[in-house]
Design a protein around this nucleic acid. Structure first.
Length: 281
DNA sequence: TACTAACCTGTACG
DNA sequence: ACGTACAGGTTAG
């Protein structure tokens, strides 16, 4: 019964958490901050340019306990069964932060395109396993970028958000190490002060890069899952998700799914998008 | 407090 | 082909 706690790289990469990944043969290559990762399965193996081990695939998570904890109903049970080995990923915080600011009102293909352009224009070029990569730019670099250069990356109206958010980091207003240490609620409050970050984006950053596993990003896909399967359980009044409603819903979600709710979100999200045959990377 | 339109831009439909 | 809607949301009013 250990089998189901192995890691499935395809599921994990293709679940909307990351954008700067490419598959080459049976090896996935991905940008993670200033680092480049190379990953393959059977057996699972990960190499990195930096040689630092950051447990990107959260191999040390107690999946057995987590899965048991989130399996509170048959919907999650099905999703977990359908995607064995799907993992949350531990991302570089700054890259994650910018990625999800860029994701607003956009789609995966375009998000990827924009982020690739940012890397190419502002990131350092490195050679890893005989291949050329452009890593993710440093906060300072994006904070100092000209409006025009950013626009040329395809950011559109998100240019202002990216610039301000980068400045917030380079100036020290946003300190990811600190955010990791404090509570979910407090860290979220701080993130929400940044222009361009709302509830959903904040929750993505907290879940995917700041160790807040109780975070449960609610986007239109998850909303669909909840409406379809949990209409009786969670209050879903009205059309739009106002800030207050988002908070209320999160509270009900934690009550139901527990402290690892973020993992349940990832399974449900993956399931719903696959069901609708939406494309990934 | 609750609700809506507007927002850059590429791409998928009709 | 060519216009229009829509995309993992946020902000301003």
């Amino acid at each position: 019964m250990q089998q189901q706690y192995l890691i499935n790289i395809d599921y994990s990469i293709n679940s909307g958490q990351v954008f700067l990944w490419e598959k080459n043969g049976d090896i996935w290559y991905g940008i993670n901050g200033a680092d480049v990762l190379a990953v393959k399965e059977n057996p699972f193996q990960i190499n990195s340019f930096s040689q630092n081990s950051i447990d990107f695939f959260r191999e040390k998570d107690e999946l057995r306990e987590i899965i048991q904890s989130i399996t509170k109903d048959k919907v999650v049970r099905n999703a977990v069964k359908q995607f064995p080995g799907l993992r949350l990923l531990r991302q570089d915080p700054f890259q994650c932060y910018i990625s999800f600011i860029v994701s607003s009102n956009s789609n995966i293909q375009r998000i990827k395109q924009i982020l690739q352009r940012l890397c190419k224009k502002f990131g350092k070029k490195i050679i890893f396993e005989k291949k050329e990569f452009f890593v993710f730019p440093e906060p300072k670099k994006l904070a100092n970028a000209s409006k025009n250069d950013l626009l040329n990356c395809g950011l559109g109206y998100r240019t202002k958000s990216v610039k301000k958010a980068s400045l917030a980091v380079s100036s020290g207003q946003i300190d990811f190490d600190l955010l990791k240490k404090i509570s979910y609620q407090n860290a979220k409050k701080i993130l929400l002060d940044v222009y361009g970050i709302g509830n959903k984006v904040a929750d993505c950053i907290l879940l995917f890069s700041l160790e807040k596993l109780e975070s449960f990003p609610i986007d239109r896909w998850i909303l669909r899952v909840l409406e379809k399967n949990y209409a009786d359980k969670f209050r879903l009044t009205g059309k739009s998700l106002t800030e207050k409603k988002y908070d209320e819903m999160h509270e009900q979600i934690i009550d139901h799914f527990g402290p690892y709710a973020g993992y349940s979100q990832q399974f449900l999200f993956k399931m719903e998008r696959d069901l609708n045959q939406k494309s990934w990377l």
